[in-house]
Amino acid sequence: MNKIIITTIIALLWISIPNQPLASEGKGLEIAMESDRRDNGWLDHTAKIRMILKNKHGEEAIRKLHLSAKEVISNGQKTDGDKILIVFDNPRDVKGTVFLTYSHKREDDDQWLYLPALKRIKRISAQNKSGSFVGSEFTYEDIASEEIEKYRYDWLRDEVYDKQNCFVVERTPIDKENTGYQRTVIWYEKENYLIVKAEFYDRKNMHIKTLTFKDYNQYLDKFWRAHELNMVNHQNGKSTRLEWSDITFQVGLTEQDFDKNRLKEVR
């Protein structure tokens, strides 16, 4: 009799435990956290980016921009997502346009756009995540800094990709409303936990885009940065390549350099 009751209780408990793991537990999360941990403490960096847009006929258009980014740290702890400033240099009609993001660990990011012709600072909605970033194959979601708290990570398998041993991890956004993707499958190479490939699945679970990372270089004996990112859209045949150069770490950027009131002075 007692046995039956206990079994019933256990069975009931078992049923009431969600079979979905609670937000990111297990090996997938460990891999994502280790990758994140190894890239902590870079403080700030600046870089130049050439954005090459290619349509399905192979025609190219080039955009030039530069970027500054800063970790948000207080008492030696990373307390929030990164602050990122992107300035357009070319084409010339959009020269001086600035895009400022404060990434947040849980809530929506804060974003501002500075339009130099009108000298106007516009706060924009962070619900633009699935929108195209300046006509490229990257969406706002793709260029935002990845905050682990916003995703669930599940390890799928180990696999060799491009002659490298990789962890393959599925990343699922926790906020399902405000995203263009149902899931993203990410290849981390095992030696340094660097992302070498990501496959994006839209909300209908169609594989729409693939992003590859190439030409990793190490800075300050610690931080790795890919110098070439290539996003291919399988649906429309277009692609966008980002070529990073002049990456400089720890230039001493301050909070004020990322103040929206300073957007007018940004170069």
């Binding site: 633009n128 929108g131 195209s132 649906q235």
Partner: peptide, 12 residues
């Protein structure tokens, strides 16, 4: 109010 990437295109 902005509709982003309407009808799976890049149109906003």
């Amino acid at each position: 109010y902005t509709f982003f990437s309407i009808a799976d295109t890049k149109l906003d």
